[in-house]
């Protein structure tokens, strides 16, 4: 297995008038070819910003203030803007959350697809168009020739997201960052899209970071799971281990709030309290104030602990024996 992406100590901060928002604060990611990493966390925990940082698409007042990103063994920190343009959409592609907003409303689908090909390859319009059509077919869009001539508003949300996925796959990238691609869609369409994306990554050997706030969605598609809270990874490990035996109380809580068939009737577990104010994070463990396992030592920030199976950032982890109520 070759390592495609290695992120160490990534920090991205926003310097706002009201103060510094440490949206991403020391995130590590490691991803192999063809692997799917699920990045989970509440809204506002810094998942999207992590994705944008890897694409080098952070705008003022934000800035990547620390860490290293290496992609296929190459350090990206010294890359020029033109080299970034070569990389984006070509080797690393991204899919956004809201399909209603990601396609340009005044450009036809074919224009938006062909430009994505021609930005990276010297091919004729006709060739590019054919490739665009074939890719639309691959993501399960019927009558792709007609869709090419349409404007975004003439397509449904699910169709638009398929188009966005097709655009991401156009140049057969090594890595796709999918930022909550199904959150805005109906449940039925959601599972179709997940299925489609999974099939494509298998076919093409593309690695993927699948961002979601829904642990259940991620569990179905990811090989590894990273759980994010207030800008940090609080738990990481292979999907099965994390799901079966979450060690961080936050993961435990997230898992408890997932309805599932075999615990029907049981009261849904809820994480108490509100998402933290990113401008004034609690001292010590950021999850402390909401945590029912909090102890005195939690006033100091916990480091990453390593068990045989997974890593977690907690002074008083959920014991290995305790299983989530089934």
């Amino acid at each position: 297995m070759t390592e495609i992406l290695k992120v160490t100590g990534l920090c991205t901060h926003f310097f706002t008038r009201a103060g510094v928002v440490k949206a991403v604060d020391g995130v590590d990611i490691s991803l192999n070819r063809g692997e799917v990493l699920g990045l989970v966390g509440e809204s506002g925990s810094g998942k999207s910003i992590t994705g944008f940082s890897i694409m080098n698409l952070i705008d003022a007042p934000g800035r990547m203030t620390g860490g290293r990103i290496s992609f296929k063994g190459r350090d990206l920190s010294q890359l020029s803007e033109t080299a970034w343009q070569d990389l984006r959409g070509n080797r690393i592609a991204m899919i956004f959350q809201d399909p209603m907003m990601t396609l340009n409303p005044v450009l036809r689908i074919d224009v938006q697809m062909i430009e994505a090909i021609q930005a990276h390859e010297k091919v004729s319009r006709t060739t590019a168009r054919e490739r665009a059509r074939d890719t639309l077919g691959m993501v399960g869009i019927p009558a792709p020739d007609e869709r090419l001539k349409a404007y975004p508003h003439q397509l449904s949300g699910g169709m638009r997201q398929r188009v966005a996925i097709a655009i991401a796959f156009l140049n057969k990238p090594d890595l796709i960052i999918a930022d909550e691609p199904t959150t805005a869609l109906d449940v039925t369409i959601q599972s179709q899209i997940i299925h489609e994306a999974q099939k494509l990554t298998r076919q093409t050997g593309t690695a993927m970071i699948w961002i979601s706030h829904d642990l259940a969605v991620v569990a179905g598609i990811a090989d590894q799971i990273s759980v994010m809270y207030a800008g940090r990874i609080v738990e990481h490990g292979p999907t099965d281990y994390v799901i079966d035996n979450p060690r961080h109380p936050y993961t435990y809580g997230l898992l408890g709030s997932v309805p599932s068939a075999n615990k029907r009737g049981a009261r849904l577990f809820q994480i108490d309290g509100m998402a933290p104010n990113m401008l004034a994070l609690p001292r010590g463990c950021a999850f402390g104030p909401r945590c029912d396992r909090a102890v005195d030592v939690c006033a100091a920030a916990p480091g990453m602990s390593q068990s045989c199976t997974q890593k977690f950032r907690c002074h008083n982890p959920v014991p290995e024996a305790v299983k989530v109520a089934k």
Partner: peptide, 9 residues
């Protein structure tokens, strides 16, 4: 941006 909240002063 997809779902960032702008911090109100």
């Amino acid at each position: 941006m997809t779902d960032t909240q702008i911090i109100a002063p």
